[in-house]
Nucleic acid binder design. Structure first.
Lengths: 233, 233
DNA sequence: CGGCTTAGTCAATGACATTCACTAAAGTGA
DNA sequence: TCACTTTAGTGAATGTCATTGACTAAGCCG
């Protein structure tokens, strides 16, 4: 599915009556990602996609059976972007840290796309490559078999969940940019005495650096993994 | 907004022409949660809501300005359910563990609702109560001020992200129950040599107990917190 | 060169959120 | 008890959306 077609007549962005090989899965996925990036999380429609591609909205159905399937393709594209140029380090912790940062950054750069995809299984080639990259680092550390799988699952669950949640929050706040006041200060409820700690810390609570929390948690996990390391052979 | 109305004429589930006080925010939120629980994540529509309430679909607009606002109310309801009957323990670790389990369980019981809400800020009373409960445990452990906030953020980020991601995955797999084969075995790509570790572990990879991974990560965090504990006064 | 496959197009359908004018039920004040 | 006001529930209308099916012509195969 990823093989590029003959590309016989790829006249860039026509407006009426496209030629035969004008649309490809890659082109469509790229357009979808661009649309998701530019604004609201709900902005990905067939109409918008058609405009972006200079084609009829329904033309896309020749390449994808449903909106759903486009989203899944975007998911794999996101993974591809994340592990593009990735090179494993000699130090397994650095490899995992690098992979974690890549996931976080890619998701943060494409929040709307990430929030719709991070919890999905794409079965795509890049997803499997990413799994393999993590497993490679885990093996490098010294784990094998079931133990390796356990550490892979813990690491990837943590990284995906935190990066995806961050993307979802980013996307949600971009969506309502320009509405009521930000939740920053309004964290104050009716009766302060029922929530004494929140009231006392009202000025400190709103300031969250989610990236720092993420990095902290990744380091916590890496430390724990290091302490669990199997005896060297 | 949470104050129950006079409840003058709450004739349960009529079918035509409801009386005046028949609908309340609570009734609507309950119906919305029921609808989300029964099936697809996209099943929450005004039409469906009207049917569930035995009212006109548009009647709901008298209590909520938009679909979005209903979802936010459901979010706060979910938090309410999660911390219902919560009692802090004498041991701060037990309190945090309990809160973590409650979030996980509630989200797992209402996957569709959770996946649409876990990344949102409701500003509702229950959200604030939950924050306060976590902060109470953190203070009990001995942290105050900015340090307390940091530990609160780390804990809640971890728990919400993991519980929410789990809900999203649960909801997604419920949605496509009865489609193609589960992703269990098909994790095998084109060229096995490009992904040696995945190929070697193909039989172990599919078996994930996400709850166990969650509990593991919570314990890892609690251990790290314990090690960072401030000196006793 | 004639026919076949199929990508892109066009029009139609049905589900959906949201708006608006309407009506009457509940509350209010005397 | 009776006008009077407010507003919750209704029904019809609008515009957006995903998806489908029939149609047409572009490229391919012989």
């Amino acid at each position: 599915m990823v093989v590029a077609p003959k590309a016989t007549a790829r006249r860039a962005g026509q407006h009426r009556g496209l030629n035969r090989g004008s649309l490809t899965r890659e082109l469509i996925v790229g357009a979808a990602l661009r649309i998701l990036d530019e604004g609201t999380a709900a902005g990905l429609t067939f109409a918008r996609l058609g405009k972006e591609l200079g084609a009829s909205p329904t033309a896309v159905y020749r390449h994808f059976p449903s909106r759903e399937s486009i989203v899944i393709a975007v998911a794999d594209e996101l993974i591809r972007l994340a592990i593009e140029d990735y090179e494993p380090s000699d130090v397994w912790e650095d490899s995992l840290r690098d992979l974690a940062e890549r996931a976080w950054n890619t998701f943060a750069q494409h929040p709307a796309a990430a929030m719709h995809t991070f919890y999905r299984v794409t079965r795509g080639p890049h997803e499997i490559a990413a799994v393999d990259a993590i497993l490679a680092a885990v093996h490098q550390a010294g784990w094998t078999g079931r133990e390796a799988v356990l550490h892979y699952q813990t690491f990837s669950t943590l990284v995906l969940a935190l990066s995806g949640s961050n993307a979802a929050r980013l996307s949600a706040s971009l969506d309502r940019a320009g509405e009521g006041p930000e939740w920053m200060q309004e964290y104050l409820p009716a009766d302060p005495s029922r929530v004494p700690y929140v009231s006392a810390l009202r000025d400190d609570l709103p300031q969250t650096d989610r990236r720092r929390v993420f990095q902290r948690l990744v380091e916590v996990l890496l430390d724990t993994m290091r302490a669990d390391l199997p005896a060297k052979s």
